[in-house]
């Protein structure tokens, strides 16, 4: 199989939409998401010369992760929002019929809102896993943490999400 050099246009075409969705789910704003895609593609173009074929997903998502972190720092936004009231409602039973309500309420806006409430590290891990479809190993490479940390972040993120969505559904 011949291997053509990768160009940033290839990356834009094959991964632009995924990067956009990653950014949108993380920040909830289409303009910020578009800016992030722009920044990532710029970094991709600068970095392609040094790219060694073999770990493209990890490399690309590492760039995306770094670009997002840098952007948050640049804007001096606090990336995380504390959620004391929904922590540890793990086994709490909501009112009868709550499951049906939960299902009915599970519109995209509610899920997006719940995502934005998560601490940044959990949100990023959940989005990489469940929106982008990266493996734990790819997430670990992108975020530069051990796989065990990825396991923990995804799990804790889902627990918080579930609690937040249950709370919304319960009213």
């Amino acid at each position: 199989m011949t291997h053509r050099p990768l160009s940033w246009e290839d990356v834009a075409r094959t991964h632009g939409r995924k990067i956009y969705n990653f950014a949108y789910r993380l920040c909830g704003d289409p303009h910020d998401a578009a800016d992030l895609v722009q920044e990532v593609l710029l970094r991709v173009r600068r970095g392609l010369e040094d790219f060694q074929p073999g770990s493209f997903e990890g490399w690309l998502w590492r760039i995306t992760h770094n670009a997002f972190i840098d952007e948050m720092r640049r804007r001096q936004r606090r990336p995380t929002a504390p959620l004391p009231e929904v922590v540890d409602r793990w086994d709490a039973q909501s009112s009868p019929g709550a499951d049906e309500q939960l299902a009915a309420m599970r519109l995209g806006d509610d899920i997006q809102a719940a995502l934005l409430e998560l601490p940044y590290e959990f949100r990023e891990a959940v989005v990489m896993c469940d929106v982008i479809g990266l493996s734990y190993e790819e997430i670990a490479a992108a975020v530069a943490v051990p796989v065990g940390t990825v396991r923990s972040r995804i799990h804790r993120g889902r627990r918080l999400l579930r609690a937040a969505l249950s709370q919304e559904a319960a009213g």
Partner: peptide, 8 residues
Amino acid sequence: AVRSLPML
């Protein structure tokens, strides 16, 4: 729930 979010 997260997986049900549409790819925009």
